[in-house]
């Protein structure tokens, strides 16, 4: 790259006229060659390549509730039990109870309407296919995509069994996993009811001043990290 300041100076001689002509030519040409965005038919831009079947299959990992896309293979509860102890229990606990704040995987059925709901795979997740999908796509947390399909099936079987959803002899495969009915299968409303409130733009006497009271304050709490100095890891406050 030249650093000459003269690059910023106006061009001299006949160059600008030539540039205008060239630019006009390009614009006219573009109008002919490039279709309007709305009218574009598939393939109009002709950019990119057509992926092969193998390329698509390699990345197409999402498993919907129908079970479409589940790979060949299988895994049993007992195989999953051994593997879980080795690979998963360090975070999720030997019985899926969750170590520290890592996610709890088991229990909690019947807790969702209480003041202390436990949203676990067993109590909350609506589809067993999601369990296979998520282990396969993201677990283990510290080494994603390190498990074989058989291993993912085995872990799926074990976690479903931990929750009492399938019997000890269950073998997970592309047919059995989508057939599992999860306890909270019908627990979701898949349509946002928002807006939840319908306030008006009140400008005066919006609330009775006599009824106004502070219900909670964050003043003096021990939950807030410092917002000055270096990033606060709160180790001094929460050893």
């Amino acid at each position: 790259m030249s650093s000459s300041p003269r690059r910023c100076a106006p061009a001299r001689g006949s160059a600008p006229i030539l540039a205008v002509i060239l630019a006009a030519t390009v614009v006219v040409g573009a109008a002919v060659l490039v279709p309007a965005a709305h009218a574009a038919a598939p393939g109009s831009y002709g950019i990119g390549t057509t992926p092969t079947e193998a390329e698509i299959a390699g990345w197409s990992i999402a498993v919907p509730p129908s079970g479409a896309n589940l790979p060949p293979g299988h895994g049993s509860v007992s195989q999953g039990s051994d593997l879980f102890g080795t690979v998963c229990a360090v975070c999720h606990g030997a019985f899926g109870e969750g170590v520290a704040d890592y996610p709890r995987l088991a229990g909690g059925v019947g807790s969702l309407a209480t003041v202390a709901p436990a949203e676990t795979v067993g109590s909350y997740w609506p589809y067993a296919t999601t369990l296979f999908d998520f282990i396969n796509r993201a677990m283990p947390f510290y080494a994603p995509h390190s498990l074989t399909p058989d291993q993912v099936y085995a872990l799926t079987a074990f976690i479903l069994n931990l929750n009492g959803i399938v019997p000890d002899g269950f073998v997970a495969d592309a047919q059995t996993v989508p057939a599992v009915k999860m306890p909270n299968r019908d627990g979701f409303i898949w349509k946002d009811p928002r807006p939840l409130t319908h306030d008006t733009e009140c400008m005066t006497k919006c609330v009775d001043p006599a009824s106004l009271r502070i219900t909670s304050t964050a003043k003096g709490d021990h939950l807030t990290p410092r917002t000055t100095g270096p990033v606060d890891d709160m180790k001094a406050k929460h050893p």
């Binding site: 999402a62 498993v63 919907p64 509730p65 129908s66 969702l112 309407a113 709901p117 949203e119 795979v121 909350y124 997740w125 609506p126 589809y127 296919t129 999601t130 999908d133 998520f134 993201a138 627990g187 979701f188 409303i189 898949w190 349509k191 946002d192 009811p193 928002r194």
Partner: peptide
């Protein structure tokens, strides 16, 4: 149809006091 991924079932859904949960609230 939707895939019902972990991030739209186990997470990013809203549990109501009734025990039902709201999904696909974007």
């Amino acid at each position: 149809t939707p895939w019902y991924t972990r991030e739209e079932t186990g997470k990013y859904t809203e549990l109501l006091p009734s025990g039902k949960a709201l999904g696909f609230t974007w």
